[in-house]
Structures are given as C-alpha cells and as structure tokens.
Design a binder for these strands. Structure first.
Length: 601
RNA sequence: GGGGGUGUGGCGCAAUUGGUUAGCGUACCAGACUGUCGAUCUGGUGGUUGCGGGUUCGAGUCCCGUCACCCUCGCCA
C-alpha cells in the first residue's frame, strides 16, 4: 500500500506541459493497454481524465512487465516522472496529450475481473445492463459529465435562492397518506401495527405549513414518490425544485422562477435566456395549439372550422358537429411537397392518439387534391379553405372528433406534421401558461379540481363559483412550458377559510368531511395563514433537456426501470417472514405459480 | 390495465423459403512486435438462440403462453 503520506500527488487528467520533470504519484483505473514488445502503454483514468503511462528502455526493468500484466479497470497506484512526448506523438484529442508519465513502480490496489460490458465513452451496452452495473457506467466520460452538470445545476439553484433570502427546509419523507392525487408508496409502522406512513408525493402540505409558520420564503430540492405507471420521462421517485412564498402574486412567482431558470442556464450552460418569458392563457393555448403545453417552436396555428351556425355544409363534418364534436385543422405551409408516405405517418399519428384519423388535402392552383378534396365543392369548400388561409402548395390537415379525442389528435398531428415538414424552430421557447381552469370534468361528468383543492380561483370568477358554476371558472394556477414540455406548475393558494369552504362545497366535499380529509392544513389555517403561492419544477426532466441527455434516466445516478424496479439492487424484493411478523403483516397474494413468495432466499 | 417493439457466447451484430456442426466483430486467454493512443498480427476458450409448451422428419426462424426491458394510451390533484 501507499508508503507516502498521501495516495496521490496529482490527478491524472490534470497533468500538463507545466508538470514536465516532476515526480508524480497517481491513482486510477487502467483504461487501456497497448503492448509493443519493448515499449508498454497504459491509459490511466481518474475523475479528471486520462493520462498515458509509458514504460520503455528508460524505465526500470520491472516496470514494463508490470504494466503488461494489468487488466482493464484494475485500480492501480503508480510512481513516475512526467515527460514530454516525443515529436510527432502528441495527442491533440486529449487534454493531457502533450505529456506522458514514465513509470517507475506499479502497485495494483484492486484487481478487476472480466467486465459485464466495456467501459467505453461511446455507448454500446444495453441500458438495463448499464443500470445493473451503474458503477461501471458512471466511469464513462459522458455519464460523469451529466453527474457533474447536475451537481452544478443544483448548486446554481441554491445560490440563486439563498441570495434571495429563501430558507432551504427539509420536510419529512415519512408522512401521512393524503386522499387526493396519485397512489401512495406506503411504509408500515412497527410501533403502531396496522398504521402506515406514506412517502410524499410532493412536499405540498408542508410547504404551505412553512408559510403559516412565517418562514416567508421556502425552497427544497425535494424527492417525491408516486406509485403510478411510468413513462419515458417519469420515474417512481423523482426530484423537484419546490418553492413557496408568502404575500406574493403571480407576478412575484413568475419573476422568481425566471431568475432561477435564467441563472441556471447561464451558470451551467453559459447560455442567456431572455426574460421575462412569454405568457399565454390556457384557453388560447387550447384554441391555437390544442395543448396546455404548446411547442411554440412550431409556427402552425389550429383553426376552428365550424361555421357561425355550427354547420359546414358537408355531411361528414356536420354529423360530428351535431354530436358536440369539433372540426378543426391547420395548414402546413409548403406541405404539399410531403410524400404520401409522410402523410400516412401524419394520419397514423392521429390514429395513435385515439382519433379515427385525419382528413387531408393538398392545395394547388386549380383547387384541392387528396381525400378531403371531394367534400370541398362549391362555396362551402372555398369558405373552408379560406378559413384556413390555405395557399397553393399547402397541405391541409383536419380532425373531426369528439372534443377530448380531437384535442389529443390535433396536438399529435400538429407536432408530427411540423417534424416531417421540418418546421420546428431552433430557438428555445419558454412560456407561462396562465389561468388554468379550476375544475376538470371527468368522463363520468364529475367535476374535480384540476390542480389541487387549495388552488385559488381568479378573483373575478369567485361569484360565479359561489353561484355553483364550474365550467369556465379560472384558477390562479400556472405552468411553465419549454418547447412543448411541461417543466413545472404552481399556483396562488387559498388562505381564506370561507373561500376554501366555498371551493370544497363546489367539488362536493361537505365542511365536516373537508376537516377530516385535510385536518392538519385546515387546522393550521385557523391560526392566521398568510396569502401565499409557489411553484415546483421537475428537475430530472429539465436537466435531461438542458444537458441533451437521451433519457431522464441518464441524469439520474441510480435510476429505475419502467416497471419501477432497480436492476442494481433488485428492489423491490421480498422480505423475510420475521420482518413481516414484526410489522403485524400477513401477505395475501394471488396464486401465480410460485411467483409470489413471502420469504427471501 | 390496453396497444406496439425487442430478446442469439460477457457485449455489439449475422444466419436464404423452416434444413448440415448457429457465423462475424469485440472483450477474455496465450504468443509475437520499441511510439501506440479504440494499436497491430497469429492462435485459442466461450452459445440449452429469455423461459415454457405446440406444429413439423427437422424450429434461432412458424404458432400459443409467459417473463424482462423499451415506447405509447389510460393513469400521474
């Protein structure tokens, strides 16, 4: 082992021409070995980078064989002297490429067996294997870069918020299950058998309690857990920047979040975003882009084609309109040059989104061609094309369906058409979506809060709310959207008990039940609650976008698969019966032919 | 929960219409080589084609089921 006071004098990746002549002691992983019979090379890698070790006739006799005996990813400690590379043998592609280390002694600190996959910067191992052996994956430079960027990004956020007098508060990871929202991950209590903690879906209640507690400005880089089915951009546990402020309006929250995001891009990427960000009311986003997270890089706007009388004069479409459906579409400027195959892809996008399909036509100097054109005879057809402002050379795409499906399909088709017509702009587009509806109507016709039940309505809509109206009542909730991706959302909360009661009764929760379901927060609000509001940004998703990562899993050190399992630890896993007994638990699993086991091996 | 895709030595891929002993690259092992940097050259080890059934004289290939992963709709206040 090391005989000197410390393990190393330098980091491999830090060595430069200025170190020439110095005696150095280095530690790291043997990344690559090249044996020329009389001269041996090894690339030694540490966190800082790679440096070339060499043993030739100038080195002690045992140095060459010692290098030659190394295996890929052995951890070694070497002593040697930094020297310039001979003429013509410098490596321009490497920061340390002007120098090499003439080796004197080699000490193997830890031997590496044959690897499950090769530690190469160029990705070639299956993702599941990378996750199972994440410690090997993290040795690759691209992964190291992502971990470093994430660390710097977190630091930037903390610096900005500390500088604005925010207090970073850690809220409980073991808390109480709340009735609303996603499915909870549960933790059984040993001391109180039959009772359970829940892992937080977000620190929502606690951050509001911080405001009642007078902390005034709270933030946290918080872990959240939701037991729901996963997606490419969703993990069962994820990280959000959670913040809350007292005595603020939407404007204060917007300005603060903009400051955080602008500083983040500047500190981490050296890029300047222009602030304030754009703003768009929810209703406008739905109307023009059929989405509450519109990608504004796409310069295509959707047009409502239903005439003033609610009729178009074409049987196909009027039937849809009579059933309360939508007929909406858009022109793709110059889209007539798209191939039939590409247009098929657009139609397929509509079908994948759940709509029956998309009706389309190409516009020429002599009128329309394509499947939709045969319905576009006469004045009604001309009016139809005029409403779309269609020009010769355009492609016209329309969707006719019930509103919910039409919405999803229009969004999908607009994105697909823009992608194929190469109409997605280069510049990032950040936009606040404002004035979200307070309620959403479910398929069963029930109204429930679109955000959460503590979201304040817009002041002008309170009367309508009190009068029992739900449809069209606006909330003081807002989302931040980047290039069609929702980065986060927030709202101004209700701090007034009367208004809170009005809201609860509006969604059919009687006062007594509200007390039971939201005891802690409702009680706190009895003792003086300041007006407050806040925001939460999903950091995994934002970082993946910022860093150009292929997946959010790449910006998470130890991610989980789409089924919520961890290939590295093989969690979730059964526990032994003693543990269950201690918790007062008995399993009642469906028979799945030995698949269900209560005992660990 | 629904739909789609993928699964072949450690890893990346191939294998004709269902047809011989499942090939190639890389990694690994051994040897050669004095300037490489994903070194090169020579030789070698390594496979129950995810798993289970079925069709067939014969299955990596076709069928059914199942598992894992990826994508997607539902879901995620």
């Amino acid at each position: 082992m090391s005989t000197s006071a410390s393990w190393r004098t330098h980091r491999c990746g830090d060595l430069r021409a200025e170190h020439i002549g110095e005696k150095v002691q280095l530690c790291g992983w043997a990344a690559n070995r090249r044996d020329h019979g009389g001269v041996f090379f090894v690339d030694l890698r540490d966190r800082a980078g790679l440096v070339q070790l060499i043993a030739d006739e100038d080195a002690p006799a045992e140095a060459g064989p010692a290098l030659d005996a190394l295996h890929a990813e052995d951890v070694i400690q070497i002593t040697g002297t930094v020297r310039p590379r001979i003429a013509g043998q410098k490596n321009e592609d490497r920061d340390t490429g002007e120098v090499e280390v003439l080796v004197e002694t080699v000490q193997v600190l830890s031997h590496a067996q044959r690897l499950p996959f090769e530690v190469l910067d160029e990705l070639d191992a299956p993702e599941q294997l990378r996750m199972k052996h994440r410690y090997l994956d993290l040795r690759r430079a691209p992964m190291k870069r992502l971990m470093e960027l994430r660390s710097r990004a977190n630091h930037s956020i903390r610096t900005t918020l500390q500088g604005r007098d925010f207090i970073e508060v850690e809220t409980p990871m073991m808390t109480r299950s709340t009735p609303e929202g996603a499915r909870d991950y549960l933790v059984p209590s040993r001391v109180k058998p039959g009772s359970w903690y829940a892992l937080p879906q977000s620190p929502q209640v606690f951050k509001q309690l911080c405001m009642v507690g007078g902390l005034d400005r709270y933030f946290q880089i918080a872990r959240c857990m939701r037991d729901e089915d996963l997606r490419a951009d969703r993990q069962p546990e994820f990280t959000q920047l959670d913040l809350e402020m007292s005595f603020v309006t939407e404007e204060d929250v917007y300005a603060l979040v903009e400051a955080v995001v602008v500083a983040l891009y500047r500190d981490v990427l050296g890029r300047e975003l222009s602030a304030p960000f754009e703003r768009m009311p929810y209703a406008e986003a739905i109307q023009k882009y059929a989405s509450d997270k519109p990608d504004l890089r796409i310069p295509i706007e959707i047009v409502d084609l239903a005439g003033p009388g609610g009729q178009l004069g074409f049987m196909v479409f009027d039937g849809v309109l009579e059933k309360g459906g939508w007929v909406r579409g858009f022109r793709v400027p110059g889209g007539a040059s798209l191939s039939r195959k590409q247009i098929d892809q657009i139609e397929q996008a509509a079908k994948d989104a759940g709509a029956g399909g998309a009706a389309w036509c190409k516009v020429t100097e002599d009128g329309a061609t394509g499947p939709l054109s045969r319905f576009l005879e006469g004045d009604a057809g001309a009016a139809f094309l005029a409403a779309l402002e269609a020009q010769p050379g355009d492609l016209v795409v329309t969707i006719a369906d019930l509103p919910r499906r039409a919405l999803v399909a229009l969004d999908a088709v607009r994105r697909k058409a823009a992608e194929l017509a190469e109409m997605v702009g280069e510049a990032d587009r950040l936009v606040w979506i404002t004035e979200f509806p307070l309620f959403e109507e479910s398929d069963e016709g029930e109204w429930h809060p679109a955000h959460h039940p503590f979201t304040s309505p817009v002041l002008e809509d309170v009367e309508a709310l009190a009068a029992g109206q739900k449809d069209g009542v606006r909330s003081r909730a807002y989302d931040l959207v980047l290039n069609g991706v929702e980065l986060g959302s927030g709202s101004i909360r209700i701090h007034d008990r009367d208004l809170q009661q009005t809201l609860f009764s509006a969604i059919g929760i009687p006062p007594e039940e509200a007390e039971v379901r939201f005891t802690h927060l409702m009680e706190a609000f009895r003792y003086g609650a300041p007006p407050h509001g806040g925001f939460a940004i999903g950091l995994d998703r934002l970082y993946a976008l910022m860093f150009g990562a292929a997946s959010i899993r790449d910006v998470i050190a130890f991610p989980k698969t789409a089924s919520g399992s961890c290939p590295l630890t093989e969690a979730p896993a059964p526990v032994d019966s003693e543990q269950l007994a201690e918790l007062g638990l008995a399993l009642d699993l469906p028979d799945t032919d030995g698949n269900a086991s209560t005992d660990a091996p």
